[in-house]
């Protein structure tokens, strides 16, 4: 007698699951595969397997174009993507895992078709394929989203690392600017600087632009705003490190830094800052003799 596909799948459930788990854990020694022996990953795979199987048993003739975001299956797939994020070197693992399951299911469905001798042969295979296409798309999207979030988090922390306000001397601060000064970064630099000026009661701040590749009108405007804010807190600003090309370009652009003290090099800027607070650096011999 012939059995229906759901009956067939139900009957072979344990066998297929064991086959999938064994195939997966022997397939690779890194990433998700390495952790698949742990009880947790086994549990996730088992739940996924049962979800997918039950979906296939009740699958309508015309499935909806996408997966239901709130279905338990999607929850587990998301978990899988999150698990993968901890092994960035094998980004394809969740996809490989799903593809290996598809392969396995297709094989079993084919066996059933052969045994049952049903006529609409292709239909069932197409259905399995289509279902797995949706799963693959969903997992892929999830991995990309996780990576995007990871990248933006990283760039935020890079920004924090690259805007140090250094205490050069009693009441002298140094702000070395390196790299691109865009709106977000400028705001952060200003925040950090103002906070440091208030905390250290700084009288002079040296802003060094040696590491800024290009000073255009928007960078200049950001720097001017920072200088204005520093002044309101009672700190004078010494601007250093504008290259000869930069100086020439700024004048052509028509940008004037008004009455800001500028020095060509950081060394000259530090000397100027010390002068403002009434200190200077001298050679030791002068006092020894």
């Amino acid at each position: 007698m012939t059995v229906s596909l759901p009956q067939f799948l139900q009957a072979h459930r344990d066998e297929m699951l064991a086959e999938w788990l064994a195939e997966w854990s022997s397939s690779s020694a890194v990433g998700l595969a390495a952790t698949s022996s742990t009880a947790q990953t086994r549990h996730v795979m088992q739940t996924l397997f049962d979800e997918i199987l039950s979906q296939l048993m009740v699958a309508p003739q015309d499935p909806p174009p996408g997966l239901d975001e709130h279905a338990p299956l999607c929850k587990h797939l998301r978990h899988l993507a999150a698990e993968q994020a901890r092994h960035p070197e094998v980004a394809t693992d969740p996809m490989r895992m799903m593809f290996s399951l598809r392969h396995l299911l297709l094989r079993h469905v084919s066996t059933w078709i052969r045994e049952a001798g049903t006529t609409p042969v292709a239909e069932h295979l197409v259905q399995v394929n289509r279902y797995f296409d949706q799963i693959a798309l969903f997992v892929f999207n999830n991995i990309i989203n996780l990576r995007d979030r990871h990248i933006s988090e990283q760039s935020l922390s890079l920004m924090e690392l690259s805007t140090p306000v250094l205490r050069l001397w009693h009441r002298i601060l140094l702000l070395p600017l390196v790299g691109i000064i865009d709106t977000g970064r400028a705001r952060q630099v200003t925040d950090h600087l103002l906070e440091a000026i208030a905390r250290h009661e700084a009288r002079v701040t040296v802003i060094d632009l040696t590491g800024v590749p290009i000073i255009d009108t928007s960078v200049a405007q950001h720097i001017m705003k920072t200088i204005d804010a520093a002044r309101l807190l009672g700190s004078r600003v010494v601007l250093t490190g504008i290259s000869p090309e930069g100086a020439q370009t700024l004048t052509k652009l028509g940008i004037r830094f008004g009455d800001v003290i500028c020095r060509a090099t950081l060394r000259a800027g530090i000397a100027e800052a010390l002068l403002i607070i009434g200190k200077r650096i001298t050679a030791m011999e002068d006092q020894a003799r």
Partner: peptide, 17 residues
């Protein structure tokens, strides 16, 4: 020259921004 390249780069950043 370095100065010319700086000019071109700055003009580019003005136009693109």
């Amino acid at each position: 020259s370095r100065a010319q390249a700086y000019h071109v780069a700055t003009a580019t950043s003005e136009l693109t921004s």
